[in-house]
């Protein structure tokens, strides 16, 4: 019995190991396959090894992984994404007012830096830069409350403009949201397809396993003697 076991486990030195694994996994070309089958007829070591590897593959298939858990990957986000989300938390009118205020403040700062003067001449509003006009020209200095009114008007006008702009953006965001919803539906559908494929692959493996077992049994009975290749270790 031991001598039989030793013979079955003896190293295979026939130099066709790569052909053997290609044949085992059904990845040999037509010519390669035919050539190896001819070799198998005369090589007990390869026949024995092929049958043994078939049994190892059966054993390996006993370890089935559980269904993969959902992977939640926290993808890093750009500063722009974070800022957009932060801004999105406020109502549209607050965002508009804040932006209008900021724009007006920037306008005033810019005018101040440029040395601008605001004046009313013949009922018209005017801004001038550079040196002050000669008093003799008769341009009256603008009153503080008039400047305030002008700035408030400018703010109101800017706020209206920004609100209109945000209405358009809001519509755009709605469209984007709808598109994302569609993408998620697509992903869920793809996921179901993957699971279906997995079940089909499992079925295929079962069929292949059954075929291999069948081949092992045939190969076993094709050997010179009928001893159990597992010998006394089973």
């Amino acid at each position: 019995m031991n001598s039989e076991k030793n013979r079955l486990n003896a190293p295979n030195d026939c130099g066709r190991k790569e052909d053997l694994v290609a044949y085992l996994y059904d990845e040999a070309g037509v010519a390669e396959r035919a050539s190896f089958e001819r070799h198998l007829d005369g090589c007990a070591a390869c026949r024995n090894e092929l049958a043994a590897f078939g049994r190892v593959r059966d054993e390996l298939s006993a370890w089935q992984a559980p269904f993969a858990p959902r992977v939640e990957v926290a993808l890093p986000r750009s500063r722009w994404d974070v800022l957009r989300e932060l801004i999105g938390m406020f109502p549209v009118w607050v965002r508009g007012a804040a932006l209008a205020g900021a724009a007006a403040a920037m306008l005033l700062v810019a005018l101040s830096i440029a040395g601008a003067r605001v004046s009313l001449k013949n009922g018209d509003f005017a801004i001038s830069f550079g040196k002050a006009e000669n008093a003799a020209t008769g341009a009256p200095a603008v009153e503080a409350e008039q400047v305030e009114r002008l700035v408030q008007n400018a703010i109101a006008s800017e706020r209206d403009r920004i609100e209109r702009q945000y209405s358009v953006q809001l519509a755009s965001f709605k469209d984007q949201l709808s598109a994302e919803h569609q993408a998620k539906l697509q992903a869920a559908s793809a996921d179901h397809q993957e699971k279906l494929k997995a079940v089909q692959a499992e079925l295929k493996r079962e069929i292949q396993r059954a075929n291999r077992q069948n081949a092992s049994i045939r190969s076993f009975f094709a050997m010179d003697d009928s001893n159990d290749p597992w010998g006394d270790v089973r």
Binding site: A65, R77, D81, E180, E194
Partner: peptide
């Protein structure tokens, strides 16, 4: 379109998990 990457995650999470587990 950062969210598109989640499609790749859903598609490949099972093989990658299986490989890592084994």
């Amino acid at each position: 379109e950062t969210d598109a990457f989640s499609l790749l995650v859903r598609r490949w999470e099972r093989p990658i998990y299986g490989l890592s587990l084994r």
